[in-house]
Every structure is written in C-alpha cells, then in structure tokens.
Amino acid sequence: MKKVYAHPKSLKRAVFHYCPGCGHSIAHRLICEVIDEMGLQDKTVGIPPPGCSVFAYHYFDVDMAECAHGRGAAVATGIKRACPDIVVFTYQGDGDLAAIGTAETIHAANRGENTTTVFINNAVYGMTGGQMAPTTLRGMKTTTTPYGRDHVIEGHPIKMSEMLAPLEGVAYIERVAVNSPANIRKAKKAITKAFQMQLDKRGFSMVEILSPCPTNWKMTPIQAWKWVDDEMSKIFPLGVYKDVTEQKSAD
C-alpha cells in the first residue's frame, strides 16, 4: 500500500490546544514537515511568541526558547549571530510582529539577519480574546472595535509583507494562506523556500500566513476558511513579494 501521509517526526504526539478550524495547527504541521524533509530537526531552534501559539513548544520537537511579546526577531538575531550554524525560526502573530514588535522585525529584516519568520496573520489578537490587531480589516468588529474598525480613528490594516519586501536585507517574502488544500500546499513550498534562503545565507526570509481564527471571527471553520478567500486576501493579496533568487544580478 502506498503511504500518503505520516506524522512528521519533529511534531510531538500531543493534542493541539487550538480551536477547531484554527490555522495555527496547520502552520505547525507544515513547518514540522519542512524541518523533517530538509533534515533540520537537530539543528533548529524555534522561538514561539506570547499569543495563542505560546505553547508551540509542546508541539515542535526541536529546541524551543520562549521570548517576550514582539521580541522574536531580536532574540533570533542573538541566537543566529552567536551561533550561525543553528537554523532559527520565529513564529509570530500579527499583534506580536506587527504591533509591539514592529521595530525589532523591521530592523532584523533590514540587517538581513539570516533567520526565518513565520508570520501568522489572523487579523485579531487571539490569545487575549479577539481585540483589534494592526491587521484587522476596515469595518471588522473586534472586542476593541465593537463598531467596526474605523480607519479614521484606528488606522488601516497594516501590510507587513509589502512593507518589508523593499528592504535590502530581505531575501524572500511570500504571503500564503492555509484555508484550502491547494493553498496549504503552496504554503509549505513557501516555508521550504524560506528555510532554504536561510541555509544559503541569503538574508531575512518571511512567510506571512493568512490564518483563520473562527473563534474570534465568530464563524464556523468553513465560513472562516471562505472568509479568507472572500475578504482577507482582497486586502492581503497572496503571492511572492520578494525573492532574491529570481532577481537578475545587477552586474
């Protein structure tokens, strides 16, 4: 019989604490599959954030070091600089990466740190109960924008991939989604490519994942998956925003 799926080696056999339909668990599995396929399990250090994924270390069977809210990129810098042979990835939510940790993220990207960031954009603060995130869509209701996000007062959904891509230290940025089998396959390819950039010492790599949060979006998993296609990816278009291996060299 042909084996079509196996439990990834670097994914511990623990039951996910995530809500049904949540994108986090899919993203975890994809990262673990990539780590296995690239043979990185024993040279990887992962950095999970405060956020719904704070317990990511219960799932990833690689060395993991928790860090303060938003500081993933700085911690990754410290690890990678001190020990360049280690493969480092941060796993960050949108509050973590695009609000409290914006400065750390931009500067790590600009320095071209050879690290990989998996950026989970679910348009809300999940862990703290569904408040507005910097990525919350216009008009979207959250517990801190009960009348819908009003861009005049609360600003616009922030587009991190578009913002970071022009920085010269950035090697690779792609925005993907984990709301359909086809998108999930693309997401895995992107994660593989991001880790490869790090192995090739090309600079900062990031995969932004549009990730359903049915709980705080107040939707069923199916509705949430559909909403990613219908609404979210209109504001956050999927695609490759930077790939230095595709660019022609200037000289």
Binding site: V45, A65, C67, A74, V75, G78, I79, K80, R81, E104
Partner: peptide, 8 residues
C-alpha cells in the same frame, strides 16, 4: 533580547 538569544 539579543542578549537573551545569545544566552539561549
């Protein structure tokens, strides 16, 4: 936080 990483 970079110090933290290096110490890890």
């Amino acid at each position: 936080n970079m110090v933290y990483g290096a110490s890890v």
